[in-house]
């Protein structure tokens, strides 16, 4: 049973990582990176590594996504300032 769930998770990871690479908007890349991290953390859980899963979920899906979004916002602000 768990192998099917894991397969679905792997497919989701692959699709979201492709979106992260090919999407034109940086914001959607960041969001899909967060989704990749979430999927990977689930995969770690299926592979019986709950320690790593918790860490990945907290850092990969939560914190680093937020930091990326903040950085993106900062960079965009700088761009508009230069144009003005």
């Amino acid at each position: 049973m768990i192998i099917y769930v894991a397969t679905i998770v792997v497919i989701v990871i692959i699709i979201t990582s492709l979106i992260a690479v090919f999407s034109k908007k940086l914001l959607s890349s960041i969001i899909s990176m967060g989704l990749v991290s979430l999927g990977v953390s689930g995969l770690f859980f299926f592979l019986q590594a709950p320690d790593v899963a918790i860490t990945e979920a907290a850092i990969g899906a939560g914190l680093s996504t937020a930091i990326f979004v903040i950085a993106l916002k900062k960079v965009k602000k700088g761009e508009t300032k230069d144009e003005e």
């Binding site: 709950p50 320690d51 918790i54 860490t55 907290a58 939560g62 914190l63 937020a66």
Partner: peptide
């Protein structure tokens, strides 16, 4: 239990 310093700290930071 599963977990430890790194995830705990990250949870606090979030």
């Amino acid at each position: 239990t599963p977990g430890g310093g790194f995830p705990g700290g990250a949870v606090i930071a979030s």
